[in-house]
Design a protein around this nucleic acid. Sequence first.
DNA 1: TTGTAGGCGTTATCAG
DNA 2: CTGATAACGCCTACAA
Lengths: 340, 340
Amino acid sequence: MKRVTLKDVSERAGVSTAAVSYVLNGREGKVSPETVDKVHSAVKELNYIPDFSARSLANNKSKLIGVVIPQTEDQSQLLLQNPFYSELVCGIEGKLRQSGYHMILSGVDKGAGYLDTSMQRNLDGAIIMGIYQESFYEELKKVSMPIVLIDSYINDSYFNVIGLDDEEGGYLAVKHLIDNGHVNIALVTGMIRKDGVIEKRFLGYKRALKEANLFYNADYVFEHSVSYEYGEQAGRIIADKHPEITAVFATSDLVALGVMRGLSEGGRKVPYDVSIIGFDDIFYARMSTPPLTTVKQNITARGAMAAERLLSAIQNAEHRTDQPILMPLELAVRQTVRKL
Amino acid sequence: MKRVTLKDVSERAGVSTAAVSYVLNGREGKVSPETVDKVHSAVKELNYIPDFSARSLANNKSKLIGVVIPQTEDQSQLLLQNPFYSELVCGIEGKLRQSGYHMILSGVDKGAGYLDTSMQRNLDGAIIMGIYQESFYEELKKVSMPIVLIDSYINDSYFNVIGLDDEEGGYLAVKHLIDNGHVNIALVTGMIRKDGVIEKRFLGYKRALKEANLFYNADYVFEHSVSYEYGEQAGRIIADKHPEITAVFATSDLVALGVMRGLSEGGRKVPYDVSIIGFDDIFYARMSTPPLTTVKQNITARGAMAAERLLSAIQNAEHRTDQPILMPLELAVRQTVRKL
DNA sequence: TTGTAGGCGTTATCAG
DNA sequence: CTGATAACGCCTACAA
């Protein structure tokens, strides 16, 4: 199928290529109504489809957004298995497509930067999920395109951030446990890294304890990775070695689900013996037995919001549109927390 | 950050742009070793990054692959919530990136075609998951690029297909149930559409029944949509109205998980009262309580295979590389089937 | 082996 | 309001 070009259209319509370009780009004020008509019908007849590569070359706009998500530990695969990211991606893609943009979804190789990709593809902007090393962000700034960060507390006004009050979320979760009479509350979590969301949730955990005059016991902190497997492992340990623990706050639903499994493998019933609360409210939270009580964020909406902010930054040709956004948070009380 | 171009590199290296281009594209045979060196170091020094838009314009290769996944019923969001698709995407992305390609992940608007996107972006190929109306495929053929279909039984040698012996899978599942003494076996499934995978699984269900001289009862077929919600609904109905049913074959794990929930809401225990077997072996299958027995396909590997076949078709400049591939299938026996 | 120049499809400038 | 025409960055005959 031979490509129909602008020129073909202009010849067919009997006008210049410039006129066609104007019409196609909505600068109709610069062109007479009848020319507009002629162009439109020529486009129809020929079934003309513009070439974005050429467009990108000519005006540095690719209508392409880079979306980066973290990879598995062995660095080879996307972390899409974590529904948190897939739901985010859903929200992003919907909004982008509806606005005439496309998304290049990828992970980023360990160490390697994202600068290459963004330059190669002339990306109009990027949405970065997860947290990376400092140098990664420095590189990003060099490219000089609008960027939205999700799940990062990087304190740099260059970036747009669609955040969450993670500290408050952690606090809410643990307070709920305390309100239900729990005292010995474990924390199961991925690595607590500086400037990461987990650190904030951890801080919320501590605040709730302190407020209730409860002792913070480092032995009750199980810290390793954000995965079902680790949750399971931690759940086992709690079941086997910590009969005094009656409640667990997991900083991610995926981990919480694992803890539930580990606990029950260890012979302890949820919520009868041990209560548990998660974070995120992924799709699967309500599918577990019993359904998981958790701190709910509207993940898909957050993705859509990220896309929206990015697009508006792009249109206004500024990197940062506004103050960081904090998405709302609420408790989703289901059946894994028992009143003591 | 001003763009470094081929020309900059050539000037820096003191050679022509052609020479640089040759070196960059591995046609080193056409160039003297010392030129090669000069170019390489100039590229390093200047930190040259090629512009894929320009490249695409010049030689019609974008290094861009379109990946299409189905949308939710209301047509607005990707079906990434179904882990089956996210795992597939993981497999695809990994392989693509490792080969220097990028992926544009998108849904396709209802009715609208994919021709526009593929032309606009000069896609080198596409991987299409799910099943669409005839006209969609016809359009695809017009673009004349290699295409890999996943989960389609379209009988057209134009397309590469990475399939599964779905009929055999359905047979295996139901035979397992029968071997465990079950006689009244329900089928819970999404819409049985012609040329879809579900139809084949359905056929396998019937074959297993027939082979065991069991009566096929249309009342035992619960057909609606591939979703957790529908599974739950069907599970409820089975619990309430069909005490005689002792086993369920769900044509997708997501549905199976829903059935389990519905059953237990209806007061029936899995597997004590009702056995259940799923299909796919998504990540969450082993996370349910009890862990789901299912027909296992290696989803990620299938995605990787799809990418691999596509790339090889692209490199050989042919649409179809080989015979359709059938990925292996096996029973993953866990704890939701009870021997009667 | 190397360099020159034309073309890929658009956009944008700048005279008419 | 319209129409040439020069970029945009790269590739590749073709010529030297």
